[in-house]
Design a binder for these strands. Structure first.
Lengths: 234, 234
DNA sequence: AACATCAAATGACTTTCAGTCATAAATTAT
DNA sequence: ATAATTTATGACTGAAAGTCATTTGATGTT
């Protein structure tokens, strides 16, 4: 027992590495097959491990799934952060956030789907408390970015309404999210039946929601900026 | 073979009755256990039938689930219809629709959840085409009600925007739906962490969205009506 | 009434998959 | 070299969706 401290550390690193390898494999399988159709056996095979080993590192399939979700949240957080940092004006930054969320949706479609699964009540059952906790931390980190920006908008008298910063965040977030979900799953249905371009609806919706919580002054000051976003027709 | 026509008819009726009995049982079990945890064995037991019989009347668990969803859609449709019929003014009727949707959410929470499950991509896999078709019909019937009202609003120059009636419908619908989903699943989380009342957010959100697509004239004319909805504070 | 035909119902069986656990392999400590 | 401990394994269990050969029962025919 000469250098057991160093060994301890190395083992920790290796363990962490294994956990990441498992998430790599899980992500691949979840993205390919979807949450339901993905099996632990296939994840094990992809990770070149036995199924039993997966259960040493994660308590359940749902926990593995949450590990993938956390990666998505982290990506979204990083995208938000870099976009907000590079923009001083609140209104521009708000529009930037909306665009960034949509960009995340387009370029990380599978991660977006994973995040959406999270909302269905069927999970949160076999999920371990630790995992729920970790997830909440990443989620809050991202959410705090958004709320801080909105708060700045309120402080600068650019944004106003009967709602506080966090509530405004939820308001903006909800409309956008639901529309993206529809774009993801029902786009053709709407395009066929009626002649509806959901992506345009999303753009207009984002604009309407943002305008609806801006002060008249701010709306006037940012008019050219806001009208830039609008689609060509009408 | 004297009166085989009458017998044929009676058999049809009995068959239809069985189907309804199965949906009764399925609804009970789905509502109690949730979509995932509900088993076909338990549905069979509740219906006092064998599992094999269920599969004579429905092709899969998902089909049975869709039969329950259709009931929810029908309830919502009926609620919408009676509310719209009793209101001539477009703005009042629009507010009525928003209130009705929320009322549906509160009084038929389980049906709302079933509808929400529909959005997850994990289904639509083992669902039979007939069932999908039937579901689309009921859905369209309800949707047409909403769109017709919005179209009336546009025709009367009360509503206006870059979107057509159907697109406006999706816009209003999406924000409300996503907020209700959150109220259903994450209400405490938001209430604890930050001090957020999601139901108030929903009310304000509905108002903001509606106002954002009203013409300035209409907004002025309906000012007292709109401000009635607002929560007390601020 | 006895028999034939057809439809409806059954439940034992198959398959698939999450999760477990006794055993084996590998690694570390003595 | 050997014991102790940690890590990995895959055969096994239980649960649940879906199937199908067989039975039950109803309708029609002689």
């Amino acid at each position: 027992m000469v250098s057991n401290l160093g060994i301890q550390e190395r083992k920790e690193r290796e363990k962490e590495h294994r956990r990441e390898e498992i998430v790599d494999a899980a992500q691949k399988v979840f993205f390919d097959k979807g949450l339901q159709a993905a099996t632990m056996d296939e994840i094990a095979e992809t990770a070149e491990l036995s199924k039993g080993t997966l259960y040493i590192y994660y308590k359940s399939k749902e926990d593995v799934y949450l590990a993938v979700v956390m990666r998505g949240l982290q990506i979204l957080h990083d995208m938000f952060e870099s976009r907000i940092r590079s923009e001083g004006q609140v209104v521009k930054a708000m529009i930037g956030l909306q665009e960034t969320y949509y960009e995340f949706f387009k370029t990380h479609r599978n991660h977006f789907r994973m995040l959406h699964y999270l909302q269905t009540p069927q999970f949160h059952r076999q999920v371990s408390d630790e995992m729920k906790q970790s997830c909440a931390v990443v989620n809050k980190k991202m959410w705090d970015l958004v709320i801080a920006l909105i708060q700045r908008g309120i402080d600068e008298s650019i944004l106003v309404s009967h709602l506080n910063a966090a509530e405004l965040g939820i308001f903006l977030w909800s409309g956008a999210t639901q529309l993206m979900i529809r774009i993801d799953t029902e786009s053709e249905r709407w395009q066929m039946g009626m002649k509806i371009d959901l992506e345009r609806v999303l753009r207009v919706s984002n604009l309407l929601m943002l305008e609806s919580i801006m002060t008249p002054d701010a709306r006037r000051d940012n008019e050219p900026l806001l009208h830039e976003i609008l689609p060509r027709n009408s």
